[in-house]
């Protein structure tokens, strides 16, 4: 896990901690993969620092991005199932840090 400024955030980065608003409400849960539009929205909201998981080695970035895209696709509409949400975050870790 590392803390980065929102300006350093890249598409495909995985949130390591929940992003919360001043009120404490969770805006974006850990395990979520940042897309370009999400990064833009966070900037707009005035977010400065975020905690993301260590990025995968650059050599594999294209294949890794494809794996994350497929992960997002297959978990569409699973937000209400706490088991599937936990699974998604575990798989994101496994893709980022292969055994």
């Amino acid at each position: 896990m590392k803390e980065i400024s929102i300006d350093q955030a890249n598409e495909g980065d995985v949130l390591a901690l929940d992003l919360t608003a001043g009120s404490g409400a969770v805006i974006l849960a850990r395990g979520n993969v940042l897309s370009a539009s999400v990064i833009a929205r966070l900037k707009k909201m005035g977010m400065r620092q975020i905690f993301v998981k260590e990025q995968a080695p650059q050599g594999n970035s294209e294949a890794t991005a494809m794996l994350f895209q497929l992960l997002e696709d297959r978990f569409t509409d699973t937000e209400n199932n706490p088991f599937l949400q936990e699974m998604k975050s575990i798989v994101a870790d496994h893709i980022t840090n292969p055994a």
Partner: peptide
């Protein structure tokens, strides 16, 4: 969820 192999679709089954 992990994406091992291919079962024919890319939609999570019901749990």
């Amino acid at each position: 969820a992990e994406g091992f192999g291919w079962g024919g679709d890319n939609v999570m089954p019901e749990l």
